[in-house]
Amino acid sequence: MPDNEGLMDRFVDRLPETAFFKFVAARILTPLWAWWTPVKPLPGGPHPSFQHGDNVQCMMNLIMPLKDKSPVGRAHAAMAISQHKDAIFAGLNNVGTVHFARFVIVGDNICMFSVYDGDFTNYIRDFIATIGEVFDAVVGLVEGGEKVIPCDKNVEAFIQWVHERDLYQVPDTPTDFLRDQERLNGDKAVAPVNDDLTLLPRKMVLQLRANANVSLGSGYRAYPGYSVAQVRKQLGLGW
């Protein structure tokens, strides 16, 4: 046993792992701190960058809650995708900047996860220009979707709608997460400052309360820095 460790020390060290503390933290402390120190949800999508490597293989993680939260509602969503598979694939080919894209049902959400090159707004604009009708079928099943149908006639509203449902991408480093929060609050200081690094867990908990679904880290890339066009050209795949 380490020096001068008493019974209460051992008990308190194990306290965070107990069901009692987890209950208190989730049901009392988190709502209390969220009320006392409100946190704004961080915006979704990739972080703005002017650099080449940050503008290829960008991630979109779109989570869309279904109106009909039942197996029948999920089946409708599955059918909407499968019925339009040819249109989706043709549209993605025509967009030309998409590495991967897939639709997934998670719980009562229809999700679209994709990896694309270039500007987010251009990606969505190109996408609905080519498969707007498909998106109408999908978005019609989603909470709040009726506001942006038909998508190809409400382009800017649709882009904003997608952006609001694109997950916040938690940075690769914990301190970049703190910088994101500071930037959102208009704080750009570097030094001297009066931070408290030990508050990181609370900041993360409160952000995850405000932003329940997030993407963790920038993700792994086997060939970072290359666009779809470069990969296809290198492999001799043409268009």
């Binding site: 380490p2 020096d3 460790e5 008493g6 209460m8 020390d9 008990f11 308190v12 060290d13 306290l15 965070p16 503390f21 933290a25 402390l29 988190t30 701190w33 408290d196 030990t198 508050l199 990181l200 867990p201 609370r202 908990v205």
Partner: peptide, 20 residues
Amino acid sequence: WLLKILDFLQLKIPQRNPYP
């Protein structure tokens, strides 16, 4: 331990324990 409980209530990381 009382200070550690205070840390937990603030959802903070308490200081690590010293090694032997």
